[in-house]
Structure formats: structure tokens, C-alpha cells
Computed example of a mutant assay.
Amino acid sequence: MSQPFTPVTSGARLSDQVADQLAAEIRRGGLVPGDKLPTEARLVAQFGVSRTVVREAVSRLKSLGLVDSRQGSGVFVQAPAAFAPLNFETRHAASQEAVIQMVEVRRALEAEVAALAAQRRSASDMRRIQAAVKALDAAVQRGGDGVAEDVQFHRAIADAARNPFLLQTLEYLGQFLHGATQVTRANEARRLDFAQQVQHEHAAIVQALEAGDAEAARQAAAGHMGNAIVRIRSADPGFWTQEGERLAQALVNARQRAS
């Protein structure tokens, strides 16, 4: 390993931060297929977390297909899965329609994720989801666009769904979905009515999750994504010429990295 990992801090879920650093090290080539991960004790020391956090992080890496355990030997980096990457056409990527299409993908996935989360969420899941909502609201009140906090909110719901295949799909699509989220959040931050709509929609999702109502959660999540599309289509022309196309460039960059 080229350098020690950075100790994680409060904020986003600790195991997610640990997993993200390990995944980044694997994807940049610092750890290659066949390499053994540092021991659990060493990871605990480097990240400054508990053994439970490290185990949760390694479990997430396993669900992503990045590592695998060998009985009595440790955890080893796996070769990437042999499947073709998404292949969006670059000429369409930096466009309003591309952003809308990515939100349509989110609507299909996150509606089902929310329904499963309503059925399977634990008390600790709900605490994380509620904390994510508060962090998002606080970011908006500070004048930010809340992109990172919005991603964390939806990630907390995905964790509660307890489906590693759905989670892995969202992780893989994250390089594209994050770019779309940047555009939608930047648009919504420009108008108070948009920001208030988003806040109410998030509250409806959380309420359905708390009630354990799968159908209400599905409808709330699908409605939230559908309304995001309406808000993008309703963006004033100035937004798209000033910010939208620049932010949507992330879709082009992600497409090029995946090709």
C-alpha cells in the first residue's frame, strides 16, 4: 500500500467512509487483484474506528465485488467483474435530456429501494436517515446546494433496503447519478419554491419509512424523482446556459472513464 489511510470523522456513516477509501485505493491501482488487504487490526488503527466499522466496510466491498475472503488467509482484492460498462453517447451526455434520463433511472431504482427499506429498516437505519435529512436541511440553510448531503440521504435509504445487488447497482451508476444530482440540486437551490418542494418530498419519504408503509414509500420516492424531472424542465433558460451545461459535463467525464 502506498500510504496509510486517513482516519475517518463524524458525519457520513463511518463504515461508508472506510469502504470509500479502500475502494478508491483499489480503483486507482494502489491495491491490485490478488493483493491482501491490511489486517483488521491495522485498518482499525489507521482509520481510528472500531472492528465493527471495519467489518461493515469490508462487507460492503464484498457486495461490490471488489474483495473476497479466503478461509484462514484473509481478505483479497478481486479482479473486476467481466461485464461491459455503460456506454452513453458523449454527444448527448451534456444535455438537459441526459440529466432527465438519469433521473428516470433513479426513479425506477429508488422507488423499489424505498419500498424495501420501509419493510426492512431498523431503528438505527431510521436514525441515520433522519440525521441525513437534518444535515441536508442545514446545508441548504447555509446557502449550499446540498449535493453531498442529498447523496448521503438516499444512500442511507439504500442501506436500509438490505439488498446488496441493488446497492451494487446504485454504486456502479453513482458516477453518472452524482453528476445528475449536481444539476438537479443546483437548479433547486436557485428557487425557494423548489427547495421547499424537495424538503416536503423528503419528509414524505421519511414518514412512509417510519410507518413501515412500503407502497407509500414507493410512491413518495417515485414522486420525488418525477417532480425532479418537472423542476429540471421548468428551469429558467439562464440556469442551463450559466450552470446546467457546466455541471452536466460530469456525465461526459463519467462516460469517458467508464468506456
Rank of each mutant, 00 (worst) to 15 (best):
T39R: 08
A250P: 00
A79I: 03
S69L: 02
I100P: 04
G223I: 04
A217V: 11
A98C: 08
L177I: 08
A203Q: 15
G48T: 05
Q119S: 09
P237Q: 10
T169C: 11
L64G: 03
V198A: 12
I205C: 04
Q256E: 13
G30V: 00
L192S: 14
T9H: 00
V77S: 05
R155A: 13
R246Q: 06
P85D: 09
G143W: 11
A217I: 10
V44H: 12
E149D: 12
A139S: 14
M102E: 11
M225T: 02
A160M: 05
V105M: 12
A161L: 05
Q46K: 01
A132Q: 07
R107H: 04
T184Q: 14
I232M: 10
R246G: 00
M102W: 10
H92W: 14
G34N: 02
L43H: 04
D213A: 10
T169G: 06
R190S: 09
M225F: 11
S122P: 04
A93G: 07
R257N: 11
D145N: 14
R185L: 01
A117I: 07
N187G: 09
A82L: 15
A254E: 02
A79G: 06
A208M: 08
R55H: 08
P7N: 07
Q130T: 01
D125A: 06
A235K: 02
E97Y: 11
G11I: 00
Q3C: 08
Q119C: 03
V230T: 13
G11N: 04
Q71I: 14
A195S: 14
M102D: 04
V147Q: 01
R191C: 05
Q182W: 10
R27P: 00
A123M: 08
V77H: 06
S69G: 04
L61D: 00
G244D: 11
V113P: 07
L116W: 08
S15Y: 03
L177M: 08
L192A: 14
R218L: 05
M126R: 10
E201Y: 01
S63R: 05
V53I: 10
L209M: 13
V49S: 04
E40R: 14
A195R: 09
Q21P: 03
F83Q: 09
E97H: 13
T241S: 15
A235H: 04
M126F: 03
M225I: 00
Q256R: 15
A82W: 11
A235E: 11
E201R: 03
